[in-house]
């Protein structure tokens, strides 16, 4: 290394990455342990896998087959080794591997989540900035009141109301249905995915707004308050007294710094939206993981519920790790902690 200082930063970064990776590993272990233990909360989990009319022999056979007759630590190790092989058990209803069922439905759910995330961030940022620069005016008050409402509406109810008004009464948008975009793209057929996009948007708008409104409102308030915080800083006063135009002050000096808390939220936001998906998909009959889970709940199809929980948490953990690493690259203060 030509420059000792640079070498030092590299080492810092490396140490941060290692620490963060180890942490994630620990968290993954914790998550698997929790999902494993949850099964045993009500005592012997065998009864969750057999029908209510099952005979004693059937129960015994199932217990043996699923390994519930072994001591808990052995069961956990088996669970982990199954997990490593991508085996999370068979769906009780469809007799297919539970993980395959979930993976099949994942692209549709990701479409919805990504769309909701786009809505919630792209609209929230300008709204928050306007609200902060017009602080104390009627416009600011109105926006903040709306944001307050947005944070108080149960998302599934908003979905039902949109379905009733926009879908059934005004007939502006289709009330259910789905055109795949991500699925063909993931299978390598990018052009089909793109040609499907305009059509898919019509189906995405209502469920997307349903999931995204809460985050949109929260982000708008977050952007506003962090803009206000930054606008009261000395360097903004300096920029103003230099005679810079208000536009430059707000966009160049204030906005960039105000964005930091918002970026921090993004990783967590994704997980939040993912869990909002479960209820919303049910309302709009969206063919994603959420509806799979709700159906599995009513049919008490435990392996499918378990597989979805594990997959969602893995996604969430990986994403948070990525966000943190990118973030540490952007903001040196983080990795020095």
């Amino acid at each position: 290394m030509p420059c000792p200082y640079l070498w030092n930063t590299y080492r810092m970064m490396l140490r941060y990455i290692t620490r963060r990776l180890l942490q994630s590993l620990l968290v993954i272990l914790g998550v698997t342990l929790l999902t494993f233990l949850t099964l045993h909360l009500a005592g012997d989990p065998t009864y969750l896998y057999v029908s209510e009319r099952a005979s004693q022999e059937e129960i015994e056979a199932t217990r043996k087959k699923l390994g519930f007759d072994q001591p808990l630590p052995v069961q956990y190790v088996n669970f982990l080794s199954g997990l490593a092989r991508g085996d999370l058990g068979m769906s009780i209803r469809s007799r297919k591997p539970a993980l395959d069922l979930v993976l099949e439905r994942l692209p549709a759910t990701l479409e919805l989540t990504i769309f909701a995330m786009i809505i919630s961030t792209t609209i929230a940022i300008p709204i928050g900035i306007i609200s902060a620069t017009k602080r104390g005016t009627g416009l600011d008050g109105g926006i903040m009141l709306l944001a307050m409402f947005g944070q108080s509406i149960p998302s599934f109810w908003l979905g039902i109301m949109l379905l009733l008004s926009v879908g059934l009464q005004l007939k502006l948008l289709p009330i259910s249905g789905h055109v795949a975009v991500l699925d063909p793209m993931l299978k390598g057929d990018i052009s089909t995915g793109l040609t499907n996009l305009p059509d898919a948007l019509r189906y995405l708008i209502m469920p997307g707004v349903t999931i995204g409104l809460f985050s949109l409102s929260r982000n708008a308030r977050l952007v506003r308050s962090s803009m206000l915080e930054v606008l009261s800083q000395d360097y903004v006063t300096t920029a103003r007294s230099k005679g810079l135009s208000e536009r430059v002050v707000i966009m160049k000096h204030a906005f960039r710094n105000a964005l930091i808390p918002v970026v921090t939220m993004l990783g967590l936001e994704f997980g939040f939206l993912l869990s909002g998906v479960v209820v919303t998909e049910t309302v709009f009959s969206w063919p994603g993981v959420g509806r799979l889970v709700t159906n599995a709940i009513t049919q008490r199809d435990i392996p499918v519920v378990q597989a979805s929980v594990v997959l969602f948490s893995f996604l969430f953990i990986t994403l948070n790790l990525l966000v943190d690493l990118i973030y540490a690259q952007l903001d040196p203060r983080i990795r020095l902690e």
């Binding site: 994630s24 968290v27 914790g30 998550v31 929790l34 999902t35 949850t38 099964l39 909360l41 009500a42 989990p45 969750l48 997980g271 939040f272 993912l274 869990s275 479960v278 889970v293 709940i297 008490r300 435990i302 519920v305 378990q306 979805s308 929980v309 969602f312 948490s313 969430f316 953990i317 948070n320």
Partner: peptide
């Protein structure tokens, strides 16, 4: 590190 509502669902399905 993981969306809590999912664990809640899992627990309530079992219990």
């Amino acid at each position: 590190a993981f969306p809590f509502i999912l664990l809640a669902i899992m627990v309530l399905v079992v219990l």
